[in-house]
Nucleic acid binder design. Structure first.
Lengths: 224, 224, 224, 224
DNA sequence: TATGAATGAGTATTCATTCAT
DNA sequence: AATGAATGAATACTCATTCAT
């Protein structure tokens, strides 16, 4: 294989060995794993360099410093969940279906992106210093609360839901019910022998549906 | 040499035994704060030595190494919540009252011991390596699940609750609903503008009562 | 291919030769500033590339390595003072006027080329490794000493100066008297509150005239 | 040799292996050499650790960081010259003798403490950032200017000196005349073939005496 | 000729841990 | 029991230099 062959081949595959975007992406993916596995203090730049197949100077060139890379990884975690939320297109669904879809999506996202919960835990342990500096960008802000607001109104109007529910509280409730058992799987296993496996999460999914819809149900049926 | 002789001797020698206990206790308290503030990776032995008013060699002499100190701090966090649970004496209450008391206690404990949630988060981020090594001691195991089991049975028997509720699931549900908003206060504030203050937690407390009791209520009233 | 052909060709190709010269010149100017500002150890190739509007590979292509660029910058500093000295044309002046002109020139050069003193300081801190490798070229050697020699002879012959003055000592004396206060302006300001400003240097210029001419004056007038 | 023998021996020699003061002093001495040899940018903490027989963590523990160590070394250079100045006890001498003693001391100090000139050069190349932060301490401020002032007054009163001489200018003049040839020995050697050796400096010492006293002499003898 | 991308070899700094008293 | 002094082993970050285009 001659040099010009290699050049052509690379061209065809659109994978030049020197590609800033590709390199930065590889670093970011590696950072997401490393930071979520070890937290900002425990994460090692060396490990990220190796895992990404790039090098430390590239990391510093693209992301400034460890804090900058951590901020990028945290932002990425939020971008992913925001993208998932957008795909849901909740407002096109009937109220009860919309709530159900959000419940299912929340569980599915937490399960399939293990770094999401871990990044959030780390960031909160840090006191939220970083999220505050990046939260003002529209990419991180969620439109979900507005959508939930509309859904709750529609549900209240047609008698499906009781009124007076604050959408952000509803969102937090749904998140809470899945977040804790997944986030705390290890301590729950060790202390209570509670195994967080697929079957258990499926049972929990049904319980959460029941609990959330029960919570939203008109007062007639609420406990005194 | 009699016991009282020893006591007097200790007094003369500035009671070394009691000083040792006091020193170890001071170190443990400082460790709990430092570890919960910065996590196991971010915590600094120097900081603990200074905060405890003791010295680094003392720490190593009493606790072996950083991991040993961390394990002791984690154990301490569990001892505290177990002591609180015991004081509740749930089994002496009527079923609905018992559940209500557990809900209130859970919120109150999370609020008044900020290190509890932080230690659990850190430990789960670490993969639970440490809790697995200390969870087999009775001090950490909770009798709460057994008590809840009895309460749920009594409630089912007298028609207050539906049957088929697993006590550990109930416990996790209650924990979840308070754990997440407190643990994630910083990100919730930054991303949703949701302020986790006393008023908000009080509202949430009432919602959790409603939700949990609704969840336990006999099927007649459950949402379809 | 004739010379004019080449010229035309260069024009068509956006005159590469002249651009190359211009690029090298821009790099050299930037290097002079960067090296004199930060010394050979503190100077950054990145900074020189940016300041010159060129790029790092260009620097390496034209100057070999950092040491080569430093040598070129040091040489440039000497070329500038040699050019100034030549313009003086001391030998065409009367002895006292010649000395006076050299005094004035020395001060003026030090003031207007701040990098000159800084480059010399850096090079001497390095032990003169580089100047020794380039000092043998005629461009750096000064003809000033020979000229001073002739002037001193003429002055001694006509009774203006005493004899026995070594021209290099005279040169060093004049340089010394301006070099130190300008080179050490910062420490003098901080430690003695001595401000090296235009007025002060003008006063000093007159003192140096007096001192140097006094030093050269026939013994009759020398202090006992 | 038993352990207790070693303990006793150490006691007698007053050289405990763990002696903060001794360690800090060794580090400072090593730093003075390293910083004066390579400047703040070129100096290596590793080299200082090795040369001092101590270790990097000790350096950081005692001096904070590289900048702190550099500041301490710079301060030390000034402390040494101030101590020398105090020993001179200039005010106890007759005016001409006092000036002569200062001239001799200045040369001698520059020659015997090669790091002094080098530290000052480095600091001025840096823009004096550090000296400004430490110059306000009395240890660095010199009382020499005040003493010179008194000497010049006495000399003017008894007709030895002309009046109107500013003491700081006199001080700078003396310093200048020795500083430059020693500071710039390498470039002077390379460019002018001027060798700065003992004989040359001795000649120069006599010239400086003549020049300075000539400069101070009453106007009768000054050049027009 | 020109340059954005890439890296090997450092360099300052930190920190858990141990020594000597 | 107690502590100030000491250090080996990292770890974040930099920079002169080169590659690939």
């Amino acid at each position: 294989m001659t040099a010009s062959d290699r050049t052509r081949a690379r061209h065809l595959a659109r994978r030049p060995r020197r590609d800033a975007e590709r390199t930065a992406r590889a670093i970011l993916d590696a950072a997401l794993v490393e930071f979520s596995d070890h937290g900002p203090a425990g994460a090692r730049i060396d490990a990220i360099a190796e895992r990404s197949g790039s090098s430390k100077p590239m990391i510093y060139s693209y992301f400034g410093d460890k804090e900058g890379l951590y901020a990028a990884a945290l932002r990425e975690a939020y971008l992913q969940i925001r993208a998932g939320e957008r795909e849901l297109d909740l407002v096109s669904l009937a109220p009860r279906q919309a709530i159900g879809a959000l419940v299912d999506f929340t569980l599915e996202h937490y399960r399939s992106r293990p770094w999401f919960i871990r990044m959030l835990n780390s960031e909160n342990l840090r006191g939220g210093a970083t999220i505050r500096t990046i939260a003002d960008t529209g990419e991180i802000q969620s439109s979900l609360i507005d959508e939930l607001d509309e859904i709750l109104r529609r549900g209240a109007a047609d008698g499906t839901f009781r009124s007076g529910i604050r959408p952000v509280e509803l969102y937090i409730t749904i998140a809470s019910l899945f977040y804790f058992p997944i986030s705390n799987a290890h301590t729950l296993q060790a202390v209570f022998g509670y195994e967080v496996d697929d079957a258990g999460l499926e049972r929990r999914r049904r319980d959460v549906h029941r609990m959330v819809l029960g919570f939203l149900a008109p007062d007639a049926c609420a406990p005194r």
